[in-house]
Simulated assay, not measured.
Amino acid sequence: MAKALFLYSSREGQTKKILNVIKDEFAEFECEVVDLHTLRHQLDFSQYQRVLIGASIRYGHLNKKLYQFIEHNLAQLEQSKVAFFCVNLTARKEEQGKDTPEGSAYIRTFLKKSPWQPKLIGVFAGALYYPRYGFFDKMMIKLIMTLTGGETDTSKEVEYTNWEKVSLFAQKFKEL
């Protein structure tokens, strides 16, 4: 049976949720899911026919552990069938193209900072989980959402993820 490795960096869980939806579309693969933040050993990509990395934006940045992982595994990333997706709240603005690699400022920054240049990149809108946030995060995210025209009711949880788009990305990933 073919194997796939799914790696993620998630703060509130939406990136992992998206990754698991993609994983469900890989029924013909034996899938291993690994949190980049808890990874304690070197991975051998040659065991996998596909590798997917998903990471979320928090306060405008991807987690530094993602960049460290890329630096330590650059040769394997460049030699394997690997895709990348980024989850952020700005991608909710699909009508402005913020949900595309070309229209995402976060992807442009990632591609400038990263020595790895993925062949397949997805950009998905995340979710607001106001009731789950601590006071500081709740107020900061509310301020950001006020400035960007988003949801500011801190009693709500709002999922912006376009699941159809996630499914289309999963199909492209299978075809790598």
Rank of each mutant, 00 (worst) to 15 (best):
M1H: 05
M1T: 11
K3M: 06
Y8H: 07
S9C: 07
S10D: 10
R11T: 15
E12L: 12
K16C: 04
K16W: 03
I18L: 02
D24H: 13
F26T: 08
A27L: 12
E30Q: 06
C31M: 11
V34G: 02
L36A: 02
H37P: 01
H37T: 11
T38G: 00
L39G: 05
R40D: 15
H41Y: 15
Q42D: 15
Q42V: 14
D44W: 06
Y48E: 10
Y48A: 12
V51L: 13
V51M: 06
L52N: 03
G54A: 12
G54R: 04
S56K: 00
I57N: 02
G60A: 07
L62N: 09
N63S: 11
N63F: 07
L66S: 06
Y67W: 01
Q68A: 15
F69N: 03
F69L: 04
I70K: 01
E71W: 02
H72P: 00
N73A: 09
L74F: 13
A75W: 05
L77T: 07
Q79G: 15
Q79V: 10
V82N: 05
A83G: 14
C86W: 03
R92G: 01
K93E: 14
E95H: 14
Q96R: 07
Q96C: 01
Q96Y: 06
D99H: 05
T100I: 06
E102S: 11
Y106V: 07
I107A: 11
T109M: 08
T109P: 02
F110N: 04
P115A: 14
P118N: 08
K119R: 13
K119N: 11
I121C: 05
G122A: 08
V123L: 10
F124Y: 02
A125W: 03
G126F: 03
L128A: 09
L128V: 07
Y129A: 10
Y129T: 13
P131I: 06
Y133A: 12
Y133I: 08
G134A: 12
M139F: 14
M140P: 02
I141H: 12
L143A: 14
T146I: 09
T148K: 03
D153G: 09
D153Y: 06
S155I: 01
E157Y: 06
E157F: 01
N162G: 10
E164C: 03
A170P: 08
A170R: 10
F173C: 03
F173H: 04
L176A: 07
